[in-house]
Write a protein that binds this DNA or RNA. Structure first.
Lengths: 247, 247
DNA sequence: CGCATCTTTGAGAGTAATCAAACGCGGTGG
DNA sequence: CCACCGCGTTTGATTACTCTCAAAGATGCG
């Protein structure tokens, strides 16, 4: 039987795919990641208003960043996949202006701000890589905003699925067009600025058309080219060093 | 008569209000800003797909960043006021994934990426300030996204006006609740994900209620507290070092 | 087996888009 | 000085997308 592929650290996969980080800087960064924790789904890593003193790395699982409105509604502004540094921005922001929570049982690693700040003071190249990382984040926000503002609901949903698939593929979590996407339709709705009822109807339409199926957290894309077409998905904004990994 | 207040450089006002930059770093940065240019309204500073080799500083005028959709519609993702470094992110991004254009006659200063990169390699403190700056940008995107996804149209418009007023106030461009906002209602619509017809109707409603008037690029806010209330405007996400400047 | 969570369905209501046309104002040129 | 022109704004009528509310099915976990 074929041996399982060497399990590469997701952070390594992630950073290598979006930056030209050196092995040396990578090792230095990884050496700070000793403090790890397993958490359940629904764990709030940081909350709006917090003054965090450390950043976290998502090793396994799934997370999202969101803001809560006064009427109780929630806008999810980002999904995070393994390898992401979801709250890296807290390094340069006193106060969190949004929250971060897991959507699935997850493993987190923590890096104290102090250590990270010292590391960046010593290593300009690494600093540039991490800075670039936060900027790519903001690129994704821009794309998301554009979807919220100007894309019709089906295209918006398709685009979100394309993005998440692409990012999961980078860290090796997509197999034959299938992936576990541990979110509910209500979570998708919160990300898309739609109601969950409407999301449900669009998903049914997609399924009826043979485009994809999303049931019980298992996402199966049957027709990636057409999905990309509906989404008008252009992965440029992910700023990958190599061309996209699905096609 | 009272002497006019000393005209401070807008970049200085801006950076001082959002970071703890030192005078020394500030001078170093300013010394790179020699290359200046006056441009007309509608000038495209950088375009989606470009590979810029310099960043710009908006000295006077008004600009916006936007993405164009295949159907010709436009999503404005940010407005830029004097003192902003609207495309600082291009320093760490090979390709622009959105465009930047002026909305009013403006004066720009350019800084080559080379020079800026060298400066950041030498000055970790300055790097942190600029990094922070790009992160605050991304905070504003998050707030904007939340508005697009979850705020009703009137609240969304009110929020945008609050933000722009607050940021103009920082650089001293608001006087007695009045400011020149050099955008059309169609521009506002492109920023808000609404049609210009709808924006017009909301503005009329605001005017009828005595909340504000926006005519021929002159914005007059009559009832700032109520505007903030409608917008649920909480300036935390602007990450100002001092509390907000209007109240 | 029972409960909690998540998904699905239907009906009715509203918000905002679209289309089309008129209006107002400032600038230009005769 | 007036007529015209263009940009931006305003208006009205119609359409349609999406939400809300309410309730019924599924599914999986304990």
């Amino acid at each position: 039987m074929a041996p399982a592929p060497a399990p590469t650290h997701p952070l390594v996969r992630h950073l290598r795919s979006t930056t030209d980080i050196t092995s040396d800087d990578l090792d230095a960064l990884l050496s700070l990641m000793r403090d790890q924790q397993d958490v359940d789904k629904g764990y709030e890593v940081v909350r709006e208003g917090d003054h965090p003193t450390r950043c976290c790395l998502l090793l396994t699982g799934f997370a999202c960043r969101y803001k809560l409105m006064s009427d109780g509604s929630r806008q999810i502004v980002a999904f995070n996949v393994p390898g992401d540094l979801p709250d890296l921005l807290s390094l340069h922001l006193g106060v969190m202006d949004h929250s971060l929570a897991t959507l699935a049982p997850s493993r987190l690693a923590y890096v104290p701000h102090d250590a990270l700040r010292q590391l960046t003071a010593e290593r300009p190249k690494l600093t540039a890589c991490l800075w670039r990382q936060t900027i790519i984040d903001s690129s994704m926000f821009l794309e998301w905003m554009t979807g919220l503002g100007r894309r019709a609901a089906p295209s918006r949903l398709a685009h979100l699925i394309c993005e998440v698939m692409a990012r999961l593929a980078i860290v090796g979590l997509v197999d034959e067009g299938q992936t576990i996407l541990p979110v509910t339709q209500a979570d998708l709705a919160d990300a898309l600025g739609l109601s969950y009822v409407h999301v449900n109807r669009i998903l049914q339409e997609f399924s009826r058309e043979g485009l994809l199926d999303f049931r019980r957290r298992l996402l199966t894309v049957h027709d990636w080219p057409r999905l990309k077409e509906i989404a008008e998905f252009d992965p440029t904004y992910l700023h990958l060093m190599q061309p996209a990994t699905i096609d």
